[in-house]
Write a protein that binds this DNA or RNA. Sequence first.
DNA 1: GTAGGGTTAG
Length: 634
Amino acid sequence: MSRQSLPSCFKTGGLTQPNKTATAAAAAVFTGGKWNTQLRELSKKGQYNQALILYRQMLRSGATPNAFTFPFILKSSAALSLHLAGKQLHCHVIKGGCLLEPFVQTALISMYGKFCLLDNAHKVFDEIPDSARLTVCYNALISGLIQKRLSNALLLFREMRTKDVPLHSVTILGLVPGCTIPLHLNLGSALHCLVVKYGFISDLNVANCFLSMYARCGSIESAKRVFDEIPERTLITWNAMISGYAQNGLCTEVLDLFRDMQCSGVHPDEVTFVGVLSSCANLGAQRIGREVEEMMDHCEFGFNPYLKNSLISMYARCGNLVRARVIFDDMPEKTLVSWTTIIGGYGMHGQGEVAVELFDQMIWAGIRPDKAVFVCVLTACSHAGLTEKGLGYFYSMQEIYSLKPLSEHYSCVVDLLGRAGRLAEAMNLIEWMPVQPDGPVWGALLGACKIHKNVELAELAFNKVVELEPRNIGYYVLLSNIYTEAGNMEGALRIRRMMRERGLKKDPGYSYVEYKGKNHLFVAGDKRHPQSKEIYAMLEKLENLAKEGGENENHSQQRENSAVHSERLAIAFALLSTNSSNAEILVIKNLRICGDCHMFVKSVSKIVKCRFVVRDATRFHHFNGGSCSCNDYW
DNA sequence: GTAGGGTTAG
């Protein structure tokens, strides 16, 4: 290849041409094969940048790269996603006469695969004569194609089998990422059978890989079966199972497994902690989360920015926004995810003003917002009633940041307008939005109709949402309650009948409180707790006190059984178990808190000198001295 | 002396 045909950056910076008049000093340090040895070391340690720098020095010194040089250096540019450097290296390979070297060919295929330049990868492969296509070449190409061109990858796999190219465990490992969505679970299971038949399953890496594939497909029992059959579990095995449980929302299982892992003498790493912290966040298990933080402080991962973000999220979701903020403020380098997490945290707690302020600070810090952070800031605005501010952000998305709003963003804005009573504008937005409105968009409108008692629009929104999400029970309950509040008992009964006919059952509402490191779970009307008797007595006492205080006088429409809703039982239990009068009690609830219970907790917070924090399905409510942080705007 | 793969946050 001539010098003229090389990409322009070849001459300016980046990699330089082999230079015969190099400095003698550099050449004296590394001579001959020493270069390759050094490159191998750097590549092995993952110091890819250093490897590329060394390669440049090598060229300057006048040394010639050979078939041993290129695999390391191609891998380095692949790992760093340096497309231009990679293409230059391809030129060097051709120039150096190494294009027929199998190791180099494989490295090139792999590199182009990582760049997602799949045609280039295919081209290198196609130019290898049929008889010289080794297992590794196939493996490299399959791994490259698997995510974007699944059928193509499967064809190659079939070709390997018809042409009797020996399979290797890595061939299988390359195929599995194509099966990590539920749609392709059958393919994954078929591969699993094949793997068992060929004996590859005894390869620990293969087993780990199938374990995580099943977990990602939501087939958690199959994942656990693979896990149970692995005789020697490494850290990665434990991590795959812990992450699998975490991704499937099996949080108590995560914490149990974490304990088992420690008992078996395997030390956790940052991947483990991420899974465990996200489960603590879901469970609201702050005490355990704090223990995990202490463990992290005692090991080398304490400063890992991933983990800091997980910690921020955990504390925010456990109700401790103060601690979340301290960790955020202490982070030397805040990433977009850090900002998103803390903004989302303030939004969840109804502190929209702070969320908005942080968003602006983020922009000043030169961080470019993405779609996710916009979802957070829009939600924060809608929870705090910052309608104009929210609309401003929504418009800026497209106009300033060229981000096309997704359905998620539209549902935030419908919520924003709807809560503010601007139902006509919300409806107008839905009619004119360029993306197809999905369930949550109509759902947001339905929710707004409940707040503003608009039965007619509610019926329209309900018909739309039920078409899109016929099994989502929440929408039926919402319309039924809208009818009840409007005094339309017939309508309410009709919806209840519809639910019955469609075989839809209400999710049981449950709440729990953490006490002495253990979660105490309550469902509505629950009498299974060992202290059930005392709990109900306490509840009655609180009811009476609230009545005496005149707090409950507006309770003409007490919903069925709301007097024994799970959050009330949890609060009664917490009050029985707490000695200090100025305590903060956190209750986690799976559904949204109902209006009756909201009023009840407000009353109780006035009677007893405790602060109550209730995390419901959408947000936090901080009750103190008779009022709630949501200002009854939820 | 060389290649191909698996677990991670908002």
